[in-house]
Design a protein around this nucleic acid. Structure first.
Length: 489
DNA sequence: GGACGGTGAAACTTCAGGTTGCCTC
DNA sequence: GAAGTTTCACCGTCC
């Protein structure tokens, strides 16, 4: 089928989008990066001539999803005003929901998105436009998986409304390659061998700790019957990986064999989870991460925050860590010097493979440090290029890791460290300095109000009791003033 | 003559996603 | 590897 599109601008993605608007249909546009998605949405919205009171309402909703709108919020809001939106992991939950329902209801005509929408959500459109078929990966720029292409093009056509759908991919100079790869090519198998180890580690420990499996033979037997082994194909290799992981788990003290003097695990030997191994499994923690946390905590008992932030920032769970660019170089060097001798993970040689990952984890830790120093989201967006939604997801992971670390620390009787970590967890949760801790215990008081109270000299519950409702009302509003007065007793 | 502003090309920077736990001093 | 962003030199205009 041939479709003629008028060449209104030099940008064909833009032309296609404008054409979609003209024929009164909806489109999803897939871009390779968040920046790319935002950019295309913005370009289209500048050319779109939509005007609608409903959209104004939606736009306002998007803008006010945070107490203080960031530049990203403003950008999205101005797009939505024109019936265009972008969608990626850096959006807040409310924003995502607003964009999705807005599209389902037909108010939003075009969404420019990263592959988020293709995988998880059922959001069909008349046109599915794939702008980028290449993406930056571990080995430079590379083709996206066939599976992903199918998922994106599969969004075209809405079964209930359209009799047809169009999936359009932008080819550039590689149309032959694209035809071979994506139209004729087979999707790759679901499991990749590289991703196996963390999952296998967690699964193994869980099987052992629930006493579902007690010998290595039984383990191999179990895995040979799973679909997973079928996918993995090579049982011999899987066997080697399994015994390697078992040895690691033993070394880390998460499992024991009955005859402890034997260094290697015998195949019929009984295997049990240790108390701490059991807890690790209950926490759904990757044993490697658990081991890392334990080692770090046993190394120090500091009352500084940065070492612990570095500890949680250098886990697999926290990946992808924030990328450190050249403009961060000086700041990170300064951090390294300032924390010399206190870091829980030593700086590797710059020639080491891990060096880049180390620097990234330093940047992530630094980001958390700034967060608990009460820097606002706009500042963080500017300085770290972290979007609001990402801030939340990183904080959630941080909270979970800190919780896990506290649990493990408690079992290891690291009382002092646990106390520090509990304080830190609260600060990470609220993004506040330690001096606000007392006030944050109150319901309805977050870091913003706590800071306002504090700067008026009200520093704790006693301070609230002393102050009159009138004065409190001026600071935090009358409803909350009454409420916290009640809470303070 | 100098402040200001627009333009374009070169240099530089950055690059997807999302599941896990919960009362504990 | 390539899109997006920043920087900077260059030119023209207005006062």
């Amino acid at each position: 089928m041939r479709v003629k599109i008028s060449k209104e601008t030099a940008n064909d993605v833009l032309n296609l989008a404008l054409d979609t608007l003209r024929i009164g249909k909806q489109a999803l546009i897939f871009a390779g990066t968040k920046q790319g998605a935002e950019k295309t949405a913005e370009e289209i919205s500048k050319k779109a001539k939509t005007n609608d009171a409903e959209l104004d309402k939606l736009s306002l909703q998007v803008l006010q999803s945070l107490s203080k709108p960031t530049k990203q919020c403003e950008r999205l809001a101005s797009c939505v005003k024109k019936g265009i939106a972008f969608h990626h992991s850096g959006l807040t939950h409310q924003q995502r929901a607003a964009v999705e329902t807005g599209f389902r209801e037909g108010k939003i005509r075009i969404i420019c998105s990263t592959p988020t929408l293709a995988a998880g959500l059922d959001l069909p459109a008349y046109r599915s436009i794939i702008r980028d078929l290449k993406r930056y990966g571990n080995y430079g720029m590379d083709w996206i998986p066939v599976l992903e292409y199918l998922q994106m093009s599969g969004r075209a056509g809405r079964p209930k409304f359209d009799t047809e759908g169009q999936a359009i991919a932008f080819a550039g100079n590689d149309s032959d390659e694209i035809y071979k790869r994506y139209i004729l090519g087979k999707p790759e198998s679901i499991h990749s061998k590289l991703a196996v180890e963390p999952v296998l580690r967690t699964a193994l420990l869980s099987l052992i700790s629930t006493k579902f499996i007690t010998t290595q033979n039984a383990i191999m037997d179990f895995f040979s019957k799973t679909f997973w082994a079928h996918q993995y194909g090579d049982m011999k290799n899987l066997g080697l990986t399994v015994s390697k992981i078992l040895r690691q788990l033993e070394e880390w003290g998460f499992i024991t064999s009955m005859e402890e003097f034997r260094s290697a695990l015998d195949e019929d030997e009984k295997i049990n989870a240790t108390a701490i191994g059991k807890r690790v499994s209950e926490l759904y923690l990757d044993p490697l991460t658990a081991h890392h946390l334990i080692q770090c905590m046993q190394k120090t008992e500091t009352d500084e925050t940065f070492p612990y932030l570095q500890m949680i920032s250098s886990t697999l769970e926290m990946r992808p860590a924030l990328r450190a660019g050249t403009r961060d170089h000086d700041n990170i060097q300064e951090l390294l010097t300032k924390n010399e001798g206190k870091l829980l993970i030593e700086e590797p040689s710059p020639f080491d493979d891990e060096y880049g990952e180390f620097i990234n984890s330093m940047k992530t830790a630094w980001f958390f440090q700034e967060w608990i120093e009460e820097k606002d989201e706009d500042y963080l967006l500017e300085k770290f290029r972290v979007r609001p939604g990402e801030i939340h997801s990183k904080l959630e992971i941080a909270d979970w890791l800190l919780y896990s670390a506290i649990e493990l620390g408690r079992m290891l009787l690291l009382r002092n460290t646990c106390r520090q970590l509990m304080k830190l967890r609260l600060r990470v949760k609220y993004g506040a300095k330690e001096e606000l801790m007392q006030l944050l215990k109150l319901k309805g008081i977050g870091r913003a109000r706590a800071r306002r109270l504090f700067s008026h000299g009200i520093k704790d519950l006693a301070g609230i009791r002393k102050e009159g409702v009138q004065k409190l009302s001026e600071i935090v509003g009358s409803k909350i003033a009454e409420d916290i007065k009640k809470q303070a007793g």
